[in-house]
């Protein structure tokens, strides 16, 4: 780890102010990606602005047919939340299977989606459920939030304050885990929502995306059989030592089928 200046603020405004003063600052939420990266000397921010002291960013509230999850709420808290388990059981299960207990007790939903790791789980839920990402400046639709590998619609001085998930009619997330890291080689989240059937795919491509052709097929008939004929193009898939593009494309279909089965 290289030297850096450390700031901890008790308010969103204070954190943003510290960021604006920093030469090359970084917000740190749970630090589950940022800190290992810094320890490996792969990142060298001039300033770290710790969001851990901002009480208003923590907590889960039910707002009508939606659940609003504060950005600094840990995966463990989401997994254990009775409200989440009741309204969107898929989301509680997804959170409860991120990383390991240490990660789940430090890592946060805001940190995860702001980082937008191509193999992270939460982005698939945000997209498939049609969630709204709330920031200190605005509200961003889930569909507009994830813009590329490790890229989001957030401005440099913009902080996620919470994520609002509308309750789906049914939803399921199927994750094919990397045997080493347990990140998603392919993760598919299927949801029946007021907005129709939504399929989000993580792990397979450089950025989480909607599986539009799968959605089309499922609109006709919501069954795993409907996915069989869908073409999942290999040329857009990631490829690494754990899974080739061909295998990932295959897994997208298999995980979609299994998620659909789990919804019905």
């Amino acid at each position: 780890m290289y030297e850096f200046s450390y700031h901890k603020s008790a308010s969103v405004d204070g954190a943003v102010e510290a960021m604006n003063k920093a030469e090359d600052g970084k917000f740190v939420a749970g630090g589950q990606t940022m800190l290992p990266t810094m320890k490996h000397r792969l990142a060298a921010p001039s300033d770290i602005i710790d969001l851990g002291g901002i009480a208003e960013l923590v907590g889960i509230t039910v707002e009508g047919d939606s659940i609003n999850i504060g950005a600094m709420t840990t995966h463990a808290a989401v997994a254990a939340s009775g409200d989440v388990q009741t309204m969107i059981p898929m989301l509680a299960k997804l959170a409860g299977n991120i990383g390991d207990p240490a990660v789940r007790n430090r890592g946060t939903i805001g940190g995860s989606i702001a980082n937008n790791d191509p193999a992270a789980d939460y982005p698939a839920a945000v997209l498939a459920l049609g969630a709204t990402v709330k920031t200190n400046k605005r509200e961003i639709a889930g569909d507009d939030f994830f813009t590329g590998m490790f890229e989001t619609a957030l401005a440099d001085d913009e902080l996620i304050t919470s994520v609002s998930f509308p309750k789906p009619t049914a939803a399921a997330y199927m994750k094919f885990e990397n045997p080493a890291s347990r990140y998603a080689i392919v993760g598919v989240c299927v949801a029946k929502t007021d907005d129709g059937i939504r399929v989000a795919v993580t792990g397979a491509t450089p950025c989480v995306h909607r599986g539009k052709q799968l959605e089309e097929a499922l609109k006709g008939e919501f069954s795993s059989a409907a996915c069989v004929g869908v073409d999942v193009p290999e040329d857009q898939m990631n490829a690494d030592i754990h899974a080739s593009a061909e295998y990932r494309a295959h897994l997208v279909k298999v995980m979609t089928k299994r998620a659909v089965d789990a919804c019905t």
Partner: peptide, 8 residues
């Protein structure tokens, strides 16, 4: 395979 991210 130089870390547990890639070495299972």
């Amino acid at each position: 395979t130089a870390s547990y991210m890639d070495y299972a």
